[in-house]
Amino acid sequence: MSEVVKVGMADLNVAKPPQKIRTSGLGSCVGVVLYDETIKVCGMAHVMLPNSSLGKTETMNKAKYADTALVVLLDKLKKMGANHVRLKAKLAGGSQMFKFSSSSEMMRIGPRNVEAVKEKLKELRIRVVSEDVGGTSGRTIEFDPETSKLSIRTVSQGVSEI
């Protein structure tokens, strides 16, 4: 049995083989995986909100926001020996689980999270290899740094790999 590193909501972590890394129940949240295929290390963040300027607290959980989480994750991976130029990204989540007629900005948070993650990745010059975002379903994702495959499970469509 290989060990699975779990990433909670508004949380991030890193893993290397034989470990896998998983986060459950992504709704409007976005799961971002950064990985270095050559030395087989990876990191995952479960991002809840697009921008740290939305935060109203003095003590900030950096893993919660797209802009700050990616910087922390990048830093952790570099400490494990990952090379910035080799890093690639895969992402999943950002769905809109509920449809409201009076759709407020807060309800559109899924797409906004995806946009924010992509923008930050672009700024950090990390290429997005594949993604499964949007839609109306919740997702549970698991990344295997050995194969660089991200498996995505939804209630209605079962398991797929990207």
Partner: peptide, 15 residues
Amino acid sequence: LSIDMAIAILSYGLL
């Protein structure tokens, strides 16, 4: 209405 993973649904209420 949504039929899905409980935590994905509840996360909406936490925003």
